[in-house]
Every structure is written in structure tokens, then in C-alpha cells.
Simulated scan of single mutants.
Amino acid sequence: MKSATRHTMLLMGLVGLWASAFAAGHDPAKGGKFASMDSDGDGQVSAAEHVAGAKKMFTDMDSDMDGQVSAAEMDAARHDKAGAKPAMSSADKIKKLDTDGDGRLSASEHAAGSDKMFKAGDSNGDGQLTSAEMQAVHDREMAQK
């Protein structure tokens, strides 16, 4: 029953995300991570939108739905359409956020890392991320090992 409930919640979340993206005129498959997080289509990602996007990202990566993301799950979830080698391996990304040192990423570790990146990226302190701010903080964090 627990698995059925998780699947139902996941499906409802995905339907809601796609519906809001469609209503806002965004196609996350074409617009990337920023467009999929900008659910109201205002060209900025609020803290609440960022939290929702991070939760969705974690759920998408957690393929076995055990509440943990391994490097293998993260690798499988990556969609690098350009075919370029990622700046940082999945294992290194996990090491940056893995506070308990178990080699896997929990939802709370992922949320804390996402919150840290949001705050670091909000360069003007307005509580919103522009596409440029999000890209800059992502590039900066992924360059650090």
C-alpha cells in the first residue's frame, strides 16, 4: 500500500507540474531546469518554486523510491542532450551534500543543498533567482570539488 501511495503522489505531482508549465506557456523539455521551476512564468524562480523544483528533481532521481539517491540513480536521471561531459560526477555532487557520509543523498540533504544554492545564487537579495543567477551559482558550485 505504501508503494501505491507513493506512486499516486508522484503521478499527481508530475501532472500538476506539467499542467502548471503548460498553463504558463513553458515546455520544461525545451526550456530546461529554470523554465520547469518557473511555474508562474514570470521569468524568476521564487524560493517556493525552487523548493518545489528541488523536490521534483529528487523524486525523479530516486528511481527505486527508497528515499535515497545513489550516484547510479543520479547518473541515470541526467539528461545531457548536448552530449557534453558533465563538469562534476554524480559521486562528487553527492559528496558535496552527503552530511552523514553514507555515499547516498537523502531528501533532507538534497533540500538543504538546494536551499544553500538558492541563497548563494540570489545575488541581489530579492528572494528570486533569474535565469542568469541560477546559471551562475550552478556553474560556480559544479566547478568546486
Rank of each mutant, 00 (worst) to 15 (best):
M1L: 03
K2T: 13
R6C: 00
T8F: 00
M9C: 12
V15Y: 15
L17M: 10
S20F: 14
A24K: 11
H26T: 04
G31S: 03
S36C: 05
D42Q: 09
D42L: 06
D42I: 12
A48N: 08
H50I: 02
V51D: 13
T59A: 09
D60A: 08
D62I: 09
S63L: 11
S70K: 01
S70G: 04
A72R: 09
A72N: 10
E73T: 00
M74V: 09
A76S: 13
R78L: 08
R78F: 01
H79K: 15
H79M: 13
D80H: 11
K81F: 15
A82N: 15
A91M: 11
K95A: 15
T99A: 03
D100F: 09
D102T: 05
R104K: 15
L105A: 01
A107Y: 09
E109W: 08
E109Q: 05
A111I: 07
A112H: 14
G113H: 02
D115T: 15
K116H: 04
A120D: 15
G121M: 07
D126E: 00
G127A: 05
G127K: 04
G127W: 07
L129E: 01
S131H: 14
A132C: 03
Q135D: 12
V137R: 04
V137I: 08
D139Y: 05
Q144E: 03
